[in-house]
Design a binder for these strands. Structure first.
Length: 579
RNA sequence: GGUCCCGUGGUGAAGUCUGGAGUUCACGCCGGCCUGUCAAGCCGGAGGUCGCGGGUUCAAAUCCCGUCGGGACCGCCA
């Protein structure tokens, strides 16, 4: 085999006269009679046209080494669509390095291909320019993140993949232990505890591009395994952490788009929930939620006798048909709403609505003015408890107005002042909104110790913050508790007793005995960041070998059964599924 | 655990609502022709368990039930 001298996609007018050897796959061949044929050869950089005497024995996707002299194309045959379109390899001699069967799908992207088929033959799909671009972009993002972190004197530390399972958080993937039959390792959901130990260990500034595993249902933006930029820093507050992360994501965004995003705005969790009905607001568009509770405080309409009424207005939406409205109502119910009220605005404030007769004229007028609704608009109202009302309307807002992933630019936003606790569980214990090591807001510490009522605790703010991009949660972080006393207090509130906390997190609590620095950190998902930056609405498009929504790998067929001997060695027995 | 959408030659789509011969279109594949194409062109050809199973019917890609696979979403994801 002749040694490659050049990449296909990089040959230009400057190379005219050079004798080159390129290697790659046959993208296309065009034969013109007995003694003229064109072969488009493709490698990772692009395509070059090779002119050969004949191509009878060449087929698409054959692997060739082509040697010839670069020459300018005749003026009338220049292909402006192709970066290499002004030159060609003339009088090329071809060496077939590998023959190929016709691929199960066309690699040129001319016809769309079912994603399962693409993934089953990912080694072919990867030849396509889309995947080439996506994986290269992802690689560039990783490099730019490392550059940003290195520049800020962070140290990359690797943490173990085989760790102890803790019942908190997502479902663990577990690995049976051969040397300790009946015991299991867990794969990390994140390096959370280890990075905090790094802080106790004086690393001061830690980062890692870490693989994490969570055994939860898959989505367009969720796979079992994912990568995150994980970081932690000592003697730093949340603001400093956000500044560091802003640098890293800005660097990444600039690498891909060529444009550095401006300063990232902050919004409080409460404001995000009230305006967008989501803790990961997509601020590329309006359709903001408006509070209408006070307007209907005197209502006789039973459905509106609720703790909270929220509404949103769609400009020019009154042409929505009954069918569409019914479908939206069904969706709202599926999201947990009892119902969805719509109000169409006609001439001079005349309204059309199935529930118009239950609203007084003043209520209607007040509502329309609050929503700034005018002729031709439609308003949607949800009455429920606050949480459900904003949740349902938030989802409706996305349904009605969310632009495609590659439109509207990149709108990062920090969501700050998350509540410390999410809700109260069956046992009356609050559940942590972030994780149990999150430091409460300094101003709310008093509330924390004084309060005996679980409902009051839900008002306690934490020093936790999320980074959101175009409605996707990129990641979250917090100031951590570094004092054992506060940590124990939180554990107590969560219903985790001293003994239990010692069993689950004893090593961290022990570490904190020996001089724990104040510290704070963050982690964001690289798959999501990469997908958004390259304009893909699905993280599978930036993952070389992804899994299907049901968690199987169409390529390797994983998960598979294992044989009896293997099970026995691990001390495992499979219970047959009984129907 | 739940809601919705999809499954038709190798690939993508139409056909399904309103049952009537495996019908159609584009790409690919195979053969032939063709000396400047580049989504080459022209001529010819091959290629099907309409995901699978059952039911209704004189007749099912089409209607019904079940099931499998894929996707989007709700729940879940500290």
């Amino acid at each position: 085999m002749t040694t490659r001298t050049d990449y296909c996609g990089r040959l230009t007018d400057a190379d005219i006269g050079r004798t080159v050897t390129v290697c790659g796959w046959v993208s296309k061949r065009r034969e013109h009679g007995e003694h003229l044929a064109f072969v488009d050869l493709r490698d990772r950089t692009g395509i070059i046209q090779c002119v050969v005497d004949h191509a009878h024995d060449i087929r698409n996707e054959y692997v060739l080494s082509v040697t010839g002299t670069i020459r300018a194309r005749p003026a009338e045959t220049i292909n402006s669509e192709l970066p290499t379109g002004s030159v060609e390899i003339g009088d090329a001699s071809v060496e077939i390095l590998s023959r190929a069967e016709p691929p199960p799908f066309q690699i040129d992207g001319r016809v769309e291909v079912d994603e399962t088929i693409r993934i089953r033959h990912r080694y072919l799909d990867l030849r396509n320019s889309r995947m080439q671009r996506n994986l290269r972009s992802r690689s560039a993002i990783n490099a730019s993140i490392r550059r940003a972190m290195d520049a800020q004197e962070f140290v990359e530390v690797e943490t173990p993949m085989l760790i102890a399972s803790t019942p908190e958080g997502a479902r663990d993937f577990v690995v049976p232990s051969r040397l300790s039959p009946g015991n299991f390792y867990a794969l990390p959901q994140s390096p959370q505890l280890f990075k905090q130990l790094c802080m106790v260990g004086g690393i001061d500034r830690y980062y890692q591009i870490a693989r994490c595993m969570r055994d939860e249902d898959l989505r367009a933006d969720r796979q079992f395994e994912f990568s995150q930029l994980d970081m932690e820093m000592s003697f730093a507050d949340g603001e400093t952490v956000r500044e560091v992360i802003s640098q890293a994501v800005s660097e990444a965004a600039e690498t891909i788009t060529g444009e550095r995003p401006g300063p990232i705005p902050e919004i409080s969790w409460l404001e995000a929930m009230n305006k967008y009905g989501s803790d990961k607001p997509d601020i590329r568009f309006g359709l903001e939620l408006v509070d209408l509770t006070a307007i209907f405080s005197e209502t006789d309409f039973n459905a509106f006798k609720a703790p909270c009424i929220k509404g949103l207005k769609v400009e020019g939406g009154s042409d929505l048909g009954r069918n569409q409205l019914d479908q939206l109502t069904d969706k709202a119910k599926n999201w947990g709403a009892k119902g969805l009220v719509w109000v169409k605005v006609g001439e001079a404030g005349e309204v059309t609505s199935p529930v118009a007769k239950f609203m007084s004229e003043s209520e209607i007028a007040y509502m329309l003015s609050e929503l700034e609704a005018e002729e031709g608009d439609i308003c949607f109202l949800v009455a429920d408890d606050w949480k459900r009302a904003v949740h349902v309307l938030g989802l409706l807002r996305l349904e009605l107005g969310r632009p495609p992933v590659n439109e509207g630019g990149f709108h990062f936003v920090w969501v700050v002042d998350f509540p410390l606790f999410e809700e109260v569980d069956d046992q009356g214990n609050p559940t942590p909104a972030h994780h149990p090591f999150t430091m409460p807001h300094e101003d709310d510490l008093a509330m924390l110790s004084a309060s005996s009522d679980a409902q009051d605790l839900l008002k306690v703010r934490s020093q936790a913050y999320d980074l959101v991009l175009n409605g996707w949660e990129l990641g979250s972080g917090s100031v951590r508790i570094h004092q054992r006393e506060i940590q124990q207090q939180i554990f107590n509130l969560l219903g985790i007793g001293e003994e239990e906390s010692q069993v689950k997190f004893g090593f961290l609590m022990d570490a904190f005995r020996y001089g724990a620095p104040p510290h704070a950190g963050f982690a964001f998902g690289i798959d999501r960041l990469a997908a958004l930056l390259v304009g893909e609405e699905n993280i599978r498009e930036v993952i070389a070998f992804p899994k299907s929504q049901s968690g199987t790998d169409p390529l390797t067929e994983a998960p598979t059964s294992i044989d009896e001997a293997q099970l026995e060695e691990l001390g495992l027995k499979v219970i047959p599924e009984t129907l």
